[in-house]
Structures are given as structure tokens and as C-alpha cells.
Simulated assay, not measured.
Amino acid sequence: MTPAARVIVLSGVCGAGKSAVGAAVADRLGVPFIDADDLHPAANKAKMARGLPLDDADRSPWLDAVAGAAAAGASVVACSALRRRYRERLLEGVPNAFFVELDVSRAELERRVRQRSHEFMSPDLLDSQLATLQPLASDEPGLRVAADDPLTDVVRAVLDQLQAHERGEHSSGR
């Protein structure tokens, strides 16, 4: 299966670059891009805008909406998918999902979230996201990519590692 034939989920905490990398990867693969942030219900957005982290009850319907949007066919999805159980829930709706966790140093994450303006993701939520994060495990469908570098370098690394994975080569990203 080529990378373009599956659903690729760019995961990670706020500031990891999911949206920017995801849009660029989708463009390079010629598939639709889905930003899971667009699928949050208004109540989730309001909660995060107040600097309050989401809980599992908040995330469940959102994850179902993300899976529903992605189940239509090959695409690239930007979705935090911070915990293993969230990734498993996505896999229930999208069995061919393949996760690419963007691994960014804390210092770079802090720099990015302080420099950007986001509709509802407060920089104050970085600590809760890092506390929630369960890195992708070796038995999950996916790989990790170091993502501290400039966008073009990260996109190239993601595409290279996806291609290496498809050829059955071991990736240096995990």
C-alpha cells in the first residue's frame, strides 16, 4: 500500500506542526487534508480557549467525528491522538490509519506556541498535553519523526520515512 492509499494521521501535542506538516504532506501526495481542530464541537473549543484541558468525555465524540471524516478514503489528518486509546478509537473507524507522531523538543514547542495565534488552543495547555501524551508504541501502526527542523525538512523526513516504511525498511525515526 503506498502512502497515498491510506489515511495518514499526523499526531502530537500543540505546536508540533501537525497542521502545517499535514497540509504539505497531503499536497505532495495529492490527497485531501483534514484538520481535526475544525471538527471540535463549539463546547470543546470554548473550554480550551479558557485554558482548560479536554477530558476523555470531551474527546470521544470528537474522535468519532475525525474517524468519520477520514473514513471516506485516502487522506492526511492532523489530529493530536495523544493517548494510545485515542489512536485505537480512530483505528476502529479507520482501520487503515497510519500514525506519524511529530516529536518536538519542549523548548521548541514552547517557542512555537508562544509565537502563534490559535483560535482556541491556549499556550497554557502545553503542559497538560505533554502530561497526556503517550508516545507511539512499537506495536502501533506508525512511526515517529523528529520535527524540530524547518517545515520543508520535516515534510521531507515524513515522506522519506513513509516511503521507507512502505518498502519494509526500518525507519530512523523510531
Score class of each variant (00 low, 15 high):
Gly17Thr: 02
Ala42Gln: 11
Ala42Arg: 07
Phe33Met: 05
Gly30Lys: 12
Asp35Met: 02
Ala24Arg: 09
Ala36Trp: 01
Ser19Glu: 05
Ala23Gln: 13
Arg28Val: 14
Asp56Asn: 07
Ala49Phe: 03
Ile34Met: 03
Leu29Val: 07
Ala24Trp: 14
Ser11Leu: 12
Pro32Leu: 01
Ala46Ile: 01
Ala42Cys: 00
Leu52Thr: 15
Gly12His: 11
Ile34Ala: 00
Ala42Tyr: 00
Asp27Pro: 08
Leu52Asn: 10
Asp38Arg: 00
Ser11Tyr: 03
Asp37Lys: 02
Ala36Leu: 00
Gly12Met: 06
Ala20Leu: 12
Gly22Glu: 08
Gly22Met: 06
Leu39Asn: 07
Asn44Phe: 00
Pro41His: 08
Gly15Ile: 04
Asp38Gly: 11
Gly22Ser: 01
Ala24Phe: 13
Ala43Val: 14
Lys18Asn: 04
Leu29Gly: 12
Gly15Pro: 14
Arg50Tyr: 12
Ala20Glu: 07
Pro53Phe: 15
Leu54His: 11
Val25His: 14
Val31Asn: 01
Asn44Val: 06
His40Glu: 01
Asp38Leu: 06
Gly51Met: 14
Val13Thr: 15
Ala24Gly: 11
Asp55Phe: 11
Ala49Tyr: 07
Arg50His: 12
Cys14Asp: 04
Phe33Ile: 08
Asp35Ala: 03
Ala43Phe: 00
Asp27Tyr: 10
Gly22Ala: 00
Leu52Phe: 10
Leu29Ser: 01
Asp37Asn: 05
Cys14Thr: 03
Ala16Arg: 07
Leu29Gln: 12
Lys45His: 04
Met48Phe: 13
Val13Lys: 00
Cys14Lys: 02
Ala36Gln: 08
Lys18His: 06
Pro41Met: 06
Val13Cys: 15
Asn44Lys: 10
Ala26Phe: 10
Ala42Asn: 01
Val31Met: 09
Val21Pro: 10
Asp27Gly: 14
Leu29Phe: 13
Arg28Met: 13
Val31Pro: 02
Ala23Ser: 12
Ala23Thr: 09
Leu39Val: 10
